Simulated scan of single mutants.
Amino acid sequence: MIKRYQGSRLRSGRYSEAGRIYHVTTVTNARYPFFSDCDLASLVCRTILWSDRSGATSTLCYVLMPDHLHWLFQLGDGESLSRAMLRVKGRSGRLCGSAVWQKGYHDHAVRKEESIRDVARYIVANPLRAGLVSSLRDYPYWNAAWL
């Protein structure tokens, strides 16, 4: 018996709320380290800025790892989470010249009782935990609103 992917069940409970803060993680196709290439990584970072300038998102922080992205942002007015992610992944994929992203993403709506700064610290510390750098100042593909 072949087991079907249960992703639609996971998505059925998803609720998108304008103005809400989300922590989203999305990975590259086959976890290939596309973003070890500084040109491709820069394109994704610029796409996040583009999303903010369009009003779809307001980034609190992000870190782009070689094979995935962690992004903490507030969703813009009139924007849905799925639409914002479709725009960012679609545009960055086109700019990179390939289908760099896997379908889907993991999202977490930050609850009122959670510390946004603690979530942000967790996100930007990813290159340290992965052993890519010994100091965050040595990792180029991250940003935080508190700087």
Rank of each mutant, 00 (worst) to 15 (best):
A125K: 03
A99R: 06
M1S: 14
S135F: 14
G131Q: 06
A18M: 05
R31M: 05
S42M: 13
R129H: 14
L64N: 08
T57H: 04
W142P: 11
V110M: 08
S135Q: 12
G13S: 13
V24Y: 02
G78L: 02
C45D: 05
S58I: 14
R46V: 10
C96T: 00
M1L: 05
S51I: 00
P66Y: 11
W146D: 13
L72K: 07
R91W: 05
I123D: 01
P33K: 04
S36G: 14
R137G: 04
S134N: 14
N126Q: 09
D138G: 14
G76E: 12
Q6P: 00
L72R: 10
L86A: 14
E114C: 07
A145I: 12
S8A: 04
Q6Y: 13
R11P: 00
G55N: 05
R4Y: 10
D37Q: 08
Y22C: 04
D67K: 03
G97A: 04
H68D: 09
L75S: 10
H68L: 10
R46D: 14
Y5F: 09
S42Y: 05
S12C: 07
L10D: 09
V88W: 00
H68G: 13
A109I: 11
R87G: 00
A18V: 03
A125V: 10
R117Q: 14
Y139T: 10
R94I: 00
A84R: 03
L49G: 03
Y122K: 06
A109S: 13
K112F: 05
S8I: 06
L60C: 15
H23K: 12
L60T: 09
S82F: 12
C96I: 01
V63D: 03
S58A: 15
I48V: 15
R20P: 01
R91K: 03
G7A: 07
M65V: 03
D138V: 11
I116V: 11
R87L: 03
H23C: 04
R4E: 09
D37S: 09
R31V: 03
L40K: 15
M65E: 14
V88N: 02
L132Q: 11
C61W: 09
R129E: 11
D118Y: 09
G13F: 09
T57Y: 03
G93T: 02
Y32W: 11
R94M: 00
A56C: 12
Y22M: 11
